[in-house]
Design a protein around this nucleic acid. Structure first.
Lengths: 331, 331
DNA sequence: ATGAAAGCGCTAACAT
DNA sequence: ATGTTAGCGCTTTCAT
């Protein structure tokens, strides 16, 4: 036994009276080992409580058995659900998932992503916060597959898995217009976030398709939390010419809008991007742009693995479809 | 440059015309290096696009800079929120978080936990699914700190961070009793889950304090999903002697109960363990046993780090307090 | 079927 | 302040 705690293959080899390589063969289940030898080695493994050091193994073999995931904000259930989906694929492939949250900070994203690359990961999934991702180009060149999730990356050739943001919000706003609404408020988080830009564009497309335009006074940006969204909606409803409908560009905004509209009992139609927990139990009916969150994570992980297996083909962007559904209306 | 892609310290040393160790010193920011030398090395680092291989570094130094987290079910927002909290601490400490989900499967938990230990992690947080954790005793002996989260472990001395399950449910049920309810249904997930056992015990304590006992016909187990809980509540309400109140032992059960009770407009008081998203927007008032999820994750991570720094002291169990709050009652 | 030796990329221990 | 050497625990290559 060595001075330090953990037994190594050398210890097992000594204990079993075989060579280091034989232990390695047995531990890794390689073929062409005498059954009696296998027995002997496994007995020593059990006796010493030996566990293979997979770090040392991958150092030598170059095998990468970890997927890195840099989310934009892990306190957001959206990214957590994605992480869960990626984790499931990782486990299925006997890989590990290392995750981190950039907190919507471009510098932190860069630091975390490069940190993960230092750990010799087999692939990296990034929800881009930074505007430029050329900091990853060297890693991509050197063979680390990168997949952008939810938002496109730039400055580096990599696959991307995105939602059909435009199509989803276009459909939701088009429906409000068909129902006769004209004063439709569009409520958004920061315009620096890609999905917000796309969803606003989708709303504009719906107006344009009817030969109409969105009233700039009804486009509200910067609603980063439900509380801020709630206050903004209160203000809108108290204005001289209030909206008759609101389109909320994400679920936090929808929740804030509900917090303002429900207690007032205001007669305002509500549509929102992203489903959320308990939306079915809302006391009033709303329309929601829904999609399969799990598909985002699963696709990203599988794209990553496929890319690892075959780095040759060009980079693709996959759009995950959305659909407009009814929620609430209980009681 | 080497045959394989990534440049190594040796490449940098050759390029800069210095020794390997000097590169190591510069890259790790060690003191006592000539500023001119630092410049020269950093220039080569930039030119070659060198990144330190942290796996190789920790192989040699023995430093463990990863926290492992085995959740019981990552698709549950509760564990996701905990993972987010742990991730935040990991980032703060410049560590990484490797996570996996046991899917409430004891064998998978064991496999995942030991897999993580193989990766030479600096500490392991486990939400126990298995009944016995002596499979971890060797790792603990060898110096890997282990913290059990949400449920106690057994067979191995390790810290645990638990909720005050009994106290929380006792308070909730006591309040229902004080309000005059006697036929109180207690709705639970599987009785094999520790928290369920504790929460049921808390409910019993509340009855016992009044010299009363819980009607066995009103104790329902095995409500693993909201849908199953919903159906069970429908059956209870249609029975000959229906409950006038329900205590739901977790948020999935509460949601199922709401799905049954709200559409019926039934006059049944509701109390539940665990807060949930949008609980504030419910059309009717319910009581919720609330607590700080972040605190669970933060405590676990900090206990782990403290344990890593000082393995000497005995193992402790920390109880995170709960409080009874109002939710819903909007419109 | 088994083993000896080299070396993955880095840091620790010891020079100088 | 800088360099040299050994070796972390394992896999690979090449013998036997």
């Amino acid at each position: 036994m060595r001075k330090t705690g953990r037994p190594t293959m050398i210890d097992v080899a000594a204990d079993a009276g075989v060579s280091l390589k034989t232990v390695s063969r047995v531990v890794n289940g390689e073929p062409n080992v005498d059954p009696a030898m296998i027995e002997r080695v496994l007995a020593s493994v059990g006796r010493l409580g030996y566990h293979r050091n997979s770090l040392a193994a991958s150092l030598r073999s170059g095998n990468r058995d970890t997927i890195g995931f840099v989310a934009a904000d892990l306190s957001n259930t959206f990214y957590m659900a994605i992480a869960a989906a990626v984790s499931a694929i990782a486990t299925r492939e006997r890989m590990h998932l290392v995750m981190a949250s950039s907190e919507e900070d471009a510098d932190l994203e860069r630091t975390l992503a490069l940190d993960l690359c230092q750990r010799q990961i087999g692939g990296l999934i990034v929800v881009p916060t930074a505007a430029d991702h050329s900091y990853l180009s060297r890693e991509v060149e050197l063979g680390t597959p990168v997949v952008f999730l939810d938002r496109p990356g730039s400055g580096v050739p990599a696959d991307a898995i995105l939602l059909d943001n435009r199509g989803g919000s276009r459909a939701a706003v088009a429906e409000l217009l068909e129902t006769g609404h004209r004063r439709i408020a569009v409520l958004l988080d920061s315009p620096e976030i890609y999905t917000m830009v796309e969803r606003l564009a989708g709303a504009r497309e719906a107006f344009a398709a009817q030969g109409l335009t969105l009233d700039p006074a009804l486009v509200v940006h910067g609603l980063h939390t439900p509380a801020v969204a709630r206050d903004a909606v209160h203000r809108l409803l108290e204005s001289a010419d209030p909206p008759t409908a609101v389109f909320c560009a994400n679920n936090r905004v929808t929740i804030g809008a509900l917090e303002a509209i429900l207690p007032r009992g205001a007669d305002v139609a509500i549509a929102g991007f992203d489903d959320f927990e308990l939306s079915r139990l809302l006391p009033r009916r709303i329309r929601v742009v829904d999609y399969d969150v799990t598909e985002l994570g699963t696709r990203a992980a599988e794209t990553l693995l496929a890319r690892g297996a075959d780095p040759a083909t060009g980079s693709h962007t996959h759009l995950v479809p959305t659909r407009l559904v009814d929620r609430g209306g209980v009681s």
